[in-house]
Computed example of a mutant assay.
Amino acid sequence: MKIASQHVVSLTYDLYIKKEDGTEDFVESATQEQPLTFLFGAGQMLPKFEENLSTLSTNDTYDFELQPEDAYGTVDEEAVTNLPLEMFQGNELPEIGAVLPLQDNQGNHFQGQVLSIAEDSVIIDLNHPMAGQHLHFKGTILNVRPATEEELSHGHAHGADGHQGH
């Protein structure tokens, strides 16, 4: 079956970050035993990722790269902020390099990485950890099926076979 909007796609992938010298560093993978399963066209995946898969069917393989602007964006040097130390009262201060779950005043969730700790604040980089990276995806489409009514109403897949795992 060919991938289309409102279909559930299960796939394997190996993700690499392509460095300037042409070499690649392995980042993560999804396997046949634990595939990535998602509702195609629901806005959960990077648009260019879905665009590269849009002509494929079950058992097809793929191999494509995404430039930073088509993935997690370029690094924004202005996306660094100071969080007052009072925010961490009663808790241990985070370690440098730690990724913190944050929320803005509108309730939007995002993450920030601790760059350093100053006398009165924790300095956080709000760029996505993969901002500025050239991503290289390789994998196989394992399964494509129409989404169930429940999946469409919930806006996400309930597993490779349509049943939510618990």
Rank of each mutant, 00 (worst) to 15 (best):
T140S: 10
T61Y: 09
E69T: 05
S10E: 01
K48Q: 13
H136F: 03
L36V: 03
F38W: 09
Y72N: 10
H128P: 04
N105F: 13
M87G: 12
M45S: 09
P68N: 02
V144G: 05
M130G: 06
L102C: 05
H7I: 00
N82M: 07
A98M: 08
D21R: 07
N91E: 10
L100H: 03
P94S: 06
L152D: 01
T31F: 12
H136V: 09
V75F: 14
L135I: 04
Y13R: 15
Q6T: 09
P35C: 07
D125W: 04
S57L: 00
D76V: 00
H163N: 10
E28R: 12
D14P: 03
G41A: 08
V144S: 05
E92D: 15
Q133R: 09
P84N: 06
A4N: 07
T23W: 08
F26C: 03
K19T: 11
S121A: 14
L53Q: 06
E95C: 06
R145L: 09
L100F: 04
A98C: 07
Q164E: 14
S57K: 13
L83C: 02
A160N: 02
H109R: 11
P35W: 00
V122A: 00
G97W: 15
P101G: 10
Q164H: 13
H134N: 13
L135A: 07
F88N: 01
G112S: 11
